[in-house]
Amino acid sequence: MILFYYLVFPGFLATFILGGIASWIERKLTARIQARVGPPFLQPFYDIRKLFIKEVTIPENSVRSIFMASPIISFASVSIVATIVGLNLVNPNYSFNGDLIVCVYLLLIPSLCLILGSGAAGNPLSSIGASREMKLVLSYELAFWTCLAVPMIKTNEIRLISLMEFQAQNGAIASSLSGIIAFIITIICMQAKLGKVPFDIPEAETELAGGAYIEYSGPLLGFFKITQYMMLVILPVFLLQIFWGPINSWVSILKYLVLLVVIILLENTNPRLKIKQAVKTLWFGLFPVAVVSIILAVLGL
């Protein structure tokens, strides 16, 4: 049964399909914003299918095992988060104490795998990508964790299901002052976690030619792509559970779409930051605000 949850619903397969649809919405909306027609509905799935029939090339001077393993590990860990987050919605019996913290840790693994994999690729551009990703992780994790402390303080719980129950009774956490500040900051950090435009510094298509992903090809790149698709579903849903709950009716889908549109608009209206600017904004701009929101939360606002 656990295996079914992990592989089919709500784990890998369901999240993957939803992620593909979300990714299509993202690409289509981007195209419409730029007055283009945009890709057909099944395009994300065509891309994945194509990647899985391509040849795998492994650079000569790479560390083979790490290079090959990291996409698969990142994909596997994201599937676990998908299972945990999804089971909270369909079958609360499986939730356990502290799953919030487990989720945040597992959500960090794709970034770590990207750092490892691109560092092992033996390509200078890829190494630059790895180092940028490392700095980016260091900068956004701080603000992200600080903001996650707000709902924990407000509810005295570190269990997703209790957070949602709390919100069902007392209204969404984001409706309080400290909650809304923390929510906005986590949305910005989510953009960095997803590697979307103001923070797509490690990938940097135009200057690093794909950066961290440069040496990946075929199925290995496919695993990273699947990870990205799935993250596009999991992260917003995770944040909704924490800040904008409860998730139980059809309205929740609307909430998710709102969050997705916010992501897409941020992506389309911003230029890429330099890594220096990103660290500066996240540490000296957003982190103090996050601390203020914690103080407000302790004061009960």
Binding site: R36, V37, G38, K54, A209, Y216, S217, L221
Partner: peptide
């Protein structure tokens, strides 16, 4: 936008390893 190759799923990539 005028020609928009993305309609056919065509995308410009920066690395030869991703290219078809």
């Amino acid at each position: 936008p005028r020609f928009d190759l993305e309609r056919f799923g065509i995308k410009l990539v920066g690395s030869i390893k991703h290219a078809d």
